[in-house]
Design a protein around this nucleic acid. Structure first.
Lengths: 335, 335
DNA sequence: CAGCATGTTAAATGGACGTTTAATGCTGCA
DNA sequence: TGCAGCATTAAACGTCCATTTAACATGCTG
């Protein structure tokens, strides 16, 4: 039952969040399921009901924080896409955003990093993540170098240096979160970039294009991404309600069936108490109309839109083919 | 008995080394005394004989690796003292020396860093270390800035950036030790410095003063420090033997008594099988002559020598006062 | 309202591990 | 050689904790 599935997802997320808080509070080594359950306000036994084992819970936690982080920086980079320099600035902005750069999250990262050497699951994930991030940074650096005015600058080296600096600054955040100044950390990174790429990040470049504004815009956009979970749910609820108005074209039962959940669950979405999984969201979109996506996720730049349309077309294509093959099968039953 | 003390020290060190290997192999979270004992080739129960508890063993391990690291970079910086730029280069050289920058050591560091947030003992030590290192780096940067040719460069920021970059590069060493290239890491740091301080680290500066040579010298000196434990013991043994030659002024019994150990232990030093603790070394020096220090620790720069003389004077002073107060007490017994 | 499924809890279980203790082996000394 | 003291071991103990199990609560269905 999809309804049960959705409810389970909520509890799982709740436990994952509790795990992150518990790691932040007690540390990885002395983390017990009792701690986790305590943070979640549940009894210890429940963890093994939603996760096969403690290991599975921890893997899910790492996957969760990894996806959260990836989403943030990839979103930031997309917003800064107009120029490679803006892209790098956006990455830095994302890396030192309060949402990811805080004592709790960083201590979770360090916990997994320290364990990664002895846990193949952690290691592959952490390495993949790091490689993705490095690749992106390197491309941006390479584009900046290609734009000229630099001799003897190795884009790869510049990117490795930037990454290392960011990881190292997180360490300061870990060790003395009270003293740590996120703005100063950003400035430190920008100082590095302005030393390496003076034409793009130097004082001259900054005044020329009105640096302050850009920063503020990116930061605001990231803020929206981050603290906007409630706002997101509100937008989703509003968009759904609009389509369910008395005069509207759809009834709750229809919409619920289309998205594969019970009416109860659908109502929890309508009231902003819960939200669909991405899979359910996809089915909702297909069931209703692509415009829903625009309304829920807010104004987005063209590329993401184009990407989405492409995906949607692909999905339709896949569904059609599946249908066709089903038809074919029913026509000629297997021998 | 001082003899027993010396033997205990050796076992303790053996167990600490085993702990580091075990953390590198199994990770902090799943480290058991059985693992440690296994690495040391001893039985599990023995650990609680030499350390009051597992916690104490771990604290001793952190203290050990911290002192090891501090000694290395402070030694390196002293050698590069001729100029602040050389000092920074020496620090980098030390940070990426195979002795500290290898998968095992780095994984030990990350283990303690990750736990530091939840363990006051670890935290204070790690923070103190980090502060010392930063302070030194910052002073060097400030001196470079003071030498001129830089505008708008913040020495503190430059130092924080460098430290962060080094810590972050260690992460790469942790995650993929096979792929990690220590030389490339050094170059990355130097590229950073040459971007921030082009007059001191730029291509021009490098060719002017024959950069290659300097690097090689510092690296060699550090090598000596590091892989030189055997050499150190050999020097010590030679220096002691010289003073014990048939025609020499001292007999084994006298020297042993003076340093508070048995003749057996002294002989183990003479044969290079063991070495005194720093405390015993101090008593040896006082008993024999300060020249011994020069012979054992090799040629050193003046400042360290001066420092040592001052310490020695202080120690004598303290001993005299202690004696005086003892005399006073025996004169007037307490009421 | 009965019956069933599902979510949740509390208690039981079994194993792992730090620590303690008693026994054993070893070394140095007479 | 025999004794004394110390280092070391092996086993026992007790605690903690992940996991399992059964009981309980809740809500849904017929």
């Amino acid at each position: 039952m999809a309804k049960a599935e959705a409810a389970k997802e909520i509890r799982r997320k709740q436990l994952i969040d509790a795990t992150m808080r518990a790691i932040g509070r007690y540390g990885y080594a002395s983390l017990t399921l009792t701690h986790v359950a305590g943070e979640a306000g549940l009894s210890p036994g429940i963890v093994n009901f939603y996760f096969k084992s403690k290991d599975q819970l921890l893997i899910a936690t790492l996957e969760n924080i990894a996806e959260e982080y990836s989403t943030l920086w990839q979103g930031a980079i997309a917003r800064g896409k107009v120029s490679p320099a803006a892209g790098l600035e956006a990455m830095i902005e994302a890396d030192f955003h309060a949402f990811v750069c805080n004592a709790e999250k960083v201590s979770v990262w360090y916990a997994f990093w320290a364990e990664a050497r002895n846990n193949a699951n952690y290691q592959s994930l952490v390495m993949r993540l790091e490689e993705e991030y490095l690749k992106e940074t390197e491309q941006l650096c390479a584009r900046i170098v290609a734009e000229g005015a630099y001799e003897g600058i190795d884009a790869h080296q510049a990117a490795v240096g930037l990454n290392a600096m960011i990881d190292g600054l997180w360490f300061d955040c870990l060790m003395s979160p009270a003293k740590f100044d996120r703005q100063a950390a950003k400035r430190t990174c920008l100082a590095y970039l302005s030393a390496v790429f003076p034409a793009h990040f130097g004082a001259a470049a900054a005044t020329k294009r009105g640096k302050g504004e850009l920063d503020a815009n990116i930061a605001m956009a990231i803020d929206q991404d981050v603290q906007g979970r409630d706002a997101h749910r509100a937008r989703l609820a509003a968009a759904l309600r609009k389509r369910l108005e008395p005069v509207g074209p759809m009834r709750r039962e229809v919409l619920a069936a289309a998205s594969g959940v019970s009416v109860k669950v659908l109502e929890s979405w309508l009231e902003g108490r819960a939200e669909p999984t991405s899979w359910q969201m996809g089915r909702l979109i297909v069931a209703v109309d692509a415009q829903l996506w625009m309304e829920v996720y807010g104004p987005v730049h063209e590329e993401a839109h184009r990407l989405f349309e492409a995906k949607l077309a692909q999905q339709r294509d896949f569904a059609e083919r599946e249908q066709a093959s089903l038809n074919a099968l029913s026509g000629k039953p297997k021998d």
